[in-house]
Design a protein around this nucleic acid. Structure first.
Length: 588
RNA sequence: UGGGGAGUCGCCAAGUUGGUUAAGGCACUGGGUUUUGAUCCCAGCAUCCGAAGGUUCGAGUCCUUCCUCCUCAGCCA
């Protein structure tokens, strides 16, 4: 048995492999944590960090979170959870012009909704990049003092020209050799509001000939007179992402800084900056390391912030929480559930390969958890009347329907049976197509949880449309009675008593786009929108559905999963959104 | 055409230091169960790892060349 292979752990991916190795080698064992973010001196006075690893989820509060962010959330928070670490919730708010409290609120809501928090044993790991502006300023001065940064007087246009191209080296700025004293004075003037927006900029001094354009003296601090949602008007200079992000990670003692692939080229600067600050004594080793993974691409949706904003602003959808949008706020209203997101992220994995996930994979995950969690109810979405001609006119009879076929402990509920019922229009065919085994003239079918009935015919209007279907019931065949099995039928249809039904608005949602890759090639993505992405109907529901609370999910049997709308439901009068249909091997 | 990445079954994705039969999931296809044409169960599903050469007793894993795709030239993140 020496050749026994060790089983591959579930959810194994390259990032976990890195963490495993780091932990095994004790790469971060010497870290200290003073209970809050801070520089080398601050952390040195703390205790050995009990968190084995620290990760962070660092959105910019300039929009709503979407399904793509969910991947990052589960990755970062999930890693921390699985490795006895901590994941920080951090707002990367270094660009005041785009950010707002509204976005901060929606983001925290969504992350909590997915099941994560940042309170750990009395410590809140909710942070803002803007909390670190003082340190960032100090770090910038340290860079200047050590000859690693300078104030440039070139215009943005001049800088662009002198940056060179992908294949040609850039040219040094004529201001690159200002003295430390001069740079320091100028930078302080920038801070003190002595210079207009855009007139001066602080740049790191690295190499204008670097083949990596991100190393050609990247800008790190700009003058920008804008009100910040958090720091108000305290600052008129703001750090750039490139400069701010590594510092945020370091101050928070983050070990594994995980971001998407497009930041790969920034990693050399990330390391360069942190090393320079460590040399200056502002930070201590071990320093955080950046790792990149492939962002999520999902068919039939758009995840770009620009496009999402366009859909909302042009009122193509009802708002950021439109149930058809891939935003987490929209997904929640749609009835998608957090546990389904977890399943989804586990299922798609994490790698560096660009990939497109079929939207159906996402839907399947939702079906899978909803199948387990959602109680069953009966709903007739496209009603047509069925009359049981041999059933007593005013009789009301109790039928018993299990709340969940997989969970008998959830009990049964009573649904009233009467002479006139609503059934699904598509469950009757006067001339059946091949393979159809529901209601047909002279055919037998079971009224689910009730009796077997025999169809006796139908009535039609002047146009030939069926208006009423007639049948007769077989008295000994009631579900749950000894005789119920006496007659075997293949068809099984659902129904609601016309006199008891809850007439209700139901929104049938479908995909927002009709193309797998909206806007692919030179098409305008708006032209790829599905004109039938929502159909509002009036359905006939089983009466107790009136008591559904907002955000309660149900399986409407034989149809799919539906949720009582979070926004438009009122007590005693919920309205429902279709989350996802059931799989249907017949219609396809 | 410079730099940095990626290419394993229809869609994802494991494949540590080369070791001999290429995980797993989803989808799909059969069959069974079923008062949801759902669920569930069982079975099947890459002689091949972007291509071509090479090294080796042995290569998805090493070397060479080539191909394809993504990404970087904001005082955005």
């Amino acid at each position: 048995m020496s050749s026994e292979k060790t089983p591959i752990p579930l959810g194994s991916n390259f990032i976990r492999a890195i963490v495993d190795k780091d932990l095994e080698q004790g790469a971060y064992a010497s870290r200290k944590w003073a209970g809050s973010p801070g520089d080398a001196a601050h952390q040195a006075a703390g205790q050995p960090d009990t968190a084995k690893i620290r990760t962070r989820f660092p959105p910019e509060p300039n929009g709503y979170l979407h399904i793509g962010h969910a991947k990052s959330i589960f990755l970062n928070f999930g890693l921390a959870r699985d490795y006895n670490g901590v994941c920080h919730m951090r707002f990367d708010d270094t660009n005041p012009e785009k950010e707002s409290q509204e976005y901060v609120d929606s983001i925290t809501d969504s992350v909590k909704w997915l099941g994560f928090g940042w309170e750990n044993s009395g410590e809140s790991n909710l942070y803002f990049a803007s909390n670190y502006f003082d340190f960032m300023y100090r770090a910038a001065e340290a860079l200047i003092e050590n000859g690693h940064a300078y104030v440039d007087s070139q215009s943005a246009e001049e800088m662009r020209i002198n940056r060179g191209t992908l294949t040609e080296a850039g040219k040094n700025s004529p201001w690159r050799d200002r003295t430390v004293a001069e740079n320091l004075a100028l930078f302080r003037e920038m801070r003190d509001g002595k210079h207009t927006d855009g007139s001066l900029i602080l740049r790191s001094k690295i190499d204008m000939a670097s083949p990596n354009i991100n190393l050609r003296d990247p800008a790190i601090y700009r003058v920008r007179r804008a009100h910040h949602h958090n720091t108000g008007d305290k600052w008129c200079i703001y750090p750039m992402y490139t400069f701010a992000h590594p510092i945020e990670d370091a101050l928070e003692q983050v070990t594994h800084s995980i971001c998407t692939l497009e930041f790969e080229d920034q990693r050399p600067f990330y390391d360069w900056l942190l090393e320079r600050l460590a040399e200056a004594g502002l930070l201590a080793h071990p320093l955080p390391k950046q790792y990149e993974f492939a962002r999520l691409n999902l068919t039939y949706v758009v995840l770009s912030k620009r496009k999402l904003i366009q859909l909302v602003e042009e009122k193509q959808v009802s708002g950021w929480d439109d149930p058809r949008l891939p935003t987490l706020a929209g997904a929640r209203r749609r009835g998608y559930v957090a546990e389904g997101f977890k399943l989804f992220t586990d299922r798609i994995g994490v790698s560096k390969a660009d990939s497109w996930i079929d939207y159906s994979t996402f839907e399947d995950c939702m079906r899978e958890v909803l199948n387990i969690n959602a109680e069953r109810r009966i709903a007739v979405l496209d009603p047509i009347k069925l009359v049981i001609d041999n059933y007593a006119e005013n009789h009301v009879e109790d039928c018993f329907a299990p709340n969940h076929p997989l969970k008998p402990e959830l009990g049964k509920r009573v649904v009233p049976l009467t002479r006139e019922l609503w059934i699904e229009r598509e469950d009757f065919m006067e001339v059946p197509s091949k393979g159809f085994f529901r209601l047909v003239p002279d055919g037998l079918v079971r009224l689910r949880y009730g009796y077997v009935v025999k169809c006796t015919g139908c009535e039609k209007d002047a146009q030939g449309n069926v208006t009423v279907v007639h049948c007769e019931y077989l008295p000994d065949t009631k579900s749950g009675t000894p005789g119920s099995d006496s007659v075997k039928v293949k068809g099984n249809i659902h129904w609601v008593s016309t006199q008891h039904a809850y007439e209700c608005e139901v929104r049938l949602y479908d995909r927002l786009f009709k193309e797998a890759h909206p806007g692919e090639g030179d098409r305008d993505f708006l032209n790829d929108m599905n004109p039938n992405s929502v159909t509002v109907i009036t359905a006939q529901l089983e009466p107790n559905l009136k008591d559904a609370k907002a955000e309660d999910s149900f399986q409407f049997e034989r149809h799919g999963y539906f949720v009582a709308d979070k926004k438009d439901s009122v007590a005693g009068k919920p309205v429902f959104n279709r989350t996802v249909t059931l799989k249907d091997a017949w219609q396809k």
